[in-house]
Amino acid sequence: MTTTVPETNGVPLPHVAPATRPDRGGTGPRRGRRALTAGAPRWQIYLPLGLYLLFTLVPFYWMLLFALRPSGSTSLVPWPATTAHFSKVWNDLGFAVFFKNSLLIGVATLVMTTVVALLGGYALARFDFRAKRAFLLALLCSQFIPGALMLVPLFQIFSELRMIDSLWSVIVAETVFQLPLSIILISGFIKNVPVSLEEAAWVDGCGRIRAFCAVVLPLLRPGLIAVGSFAFVHSWNHFLFSLMFLSTQEKYTIPVGLSYTIGSGESVELGTLAAGGVVAAVPVVIVFAFIQKWLVTGFSAGAVKG
């Protein structure tokens, strides 16, 4: 088995697992596994799991608590709840604008990454060509390039292109750093679609493009959703590029706005800061809830096999 890739910037990746592996996640207990783990007493599962859940959930709860309870309250239950903090970040601190910018950047990155990666991934999956090995190697090596170290030269390039303080600088930079992984992923998904399906469509008189759209694309949907969600979550979360490339306040993204709110110290109430955090978290939580079932099982099916 050859192994490739997981991840850039924190996205766990596909895993190299046999594509045929059944989903153990939701299909209920399986006899064999249960017999094997019968050796582990229940408390050895529930105790560490409970502790870990506490570690995971208390911070989320803390943010919600601060965002919902009135200022000055020290209650540990956010009741009676107030929306004052939310209206303050959204209207007074400009989070409505930041939200819109982040959304624009996220969607544009999602679209560009998916389209370009679809083209490249199809070439890798369906063609043998001379530069293929070199292209793959370049994709893999670029996984090891820290984006933070590219800030200075990228800043120069975008200055020369007069793109500093334009959302496009961030969109292009995000797309470029998302691409290598997305291409490798998508080519893995396309490889899982039998060529014979496409060939049957060619026989029926479809051109390559029509055959692709009619036969392959529908089957790629889960994979494309996953790749697109990654691209979106990443650019939504990414901080450095927007911090460095965008300079006027109307261009700020949510993480940049949040970081200035953090930096303003005593002048901003903690409840307001927490509400800003909730605003930043909502889209990501929605996307996560949507894709989490693919993270482990579906993604291992998209296995990147060289």
């Binding site: 799991l49 911070p59 943010m63 939504w236 953090i262 930043a280 990501v284 993270l295």
Partner: peptide, 16 residues
Amino acid sequence: LVFSPWAVSGVLTTTI
């Protein structure tokens, strides 16, 4: 639940 912080950004982690 235990996987959920995966999708949280660095700045949001700081906030929390």
